[in-house]
């Protein structure tokens, strides 16, 4: 008879980096986006001409630049985790700031894109394609902001000396969330901007 486990985390000791709670949360988030993507795909098939037509009005160059920004910033977050594991708090904070800069760049480019679209009189009611384009990207936009808040909070805590080589669960937790934000964009970008 095996001994009872007192804690859920005890079951899977080293499988997932970061707190189990954030993984449950990430799972839920991916579920939301997943449902959205599936619906997008289904509706696109039903309105293929409309979607193909209006897809061309999107700014692919900005989208590609944003993809690069997020991937780079995800890499910086990886470096931050490595830094804290090597007990190098200073570098960890620098890498986190780098990642935040990447996120900020994303927000600026994206806002520019929105201003462009809104000034052309486009809104959620314009047509089905723009409805999906705007609601999907805006929902993701909010997640970038949330991810940045989390990274910023971690950077501040790191500055106060809350993390070390032994205790870096917080950094890993934040990093996991940021990777999810990145991952969602990597699926969203080709799905909405490119695939024809």
């Amino acid at each position: 008879m095996p001994t009872p486990i007192t804690n859920i985390e005890a079951i899977e000791p080293k499988l997932l980096p970061g707190d189990l709670a954030i993984w449950l949360f990430i799972f839920m988030e991916l579920l939301v986006f997943g449902i959205f993507f599936i619906i997008y795909a289904v509706v696109r098939i039903q309105n293929i001409e409309l979607f193909n037509h209006y897809q061309l009005t999107l700014n692919r160059e900005l989208g590609a630049a944003n993809t690069l920004l997020l991937i780079t910033s995800s890499y910086f977050v990886v470096r931050a985790v490595h830094a804290i594991k090597a007990d190098n708090i200073k570098n960890c904070i620098y890498w986190l700031y780098g990642a935040l800069a990447g996120g900020a760049g994303f927000l600026i480019l994206k806002s520019w894109e929105y201003v462009d679209k809104f000034s052309a009189g486009i809104n959620l009611s314009t047509n089905t394609f723009y409805m999906f384009y705007l609601s999907l990207t805006m929902f993701h936009f909010l997640h970038v902001i949330l991810g940045m808040v989390i990274l910023f909070a971690i950077a501040i805590k790191a500055k106060r000396g809350a993390y070390s080589a032994q205790n870096h669960l917080g950094v890993e937790t934040g990093a996991s969330y940021w990777h999810m934000v990145d991952l969602v964009w990597i699926i969203l970008f080709p799905l909405v901007y490119i695939i024809r």
Binding site: P2, T3, I5, I11, E12, P13
Partner: peptide, 10 residues
């Protein structure tokens, strides 16, 4: 992981 842990995981 030892057997007990593996069994519990399964």
């Amino acid at each position: 992981m030892n057997t007990d842990d593996l069994q519990l995981k399964r």
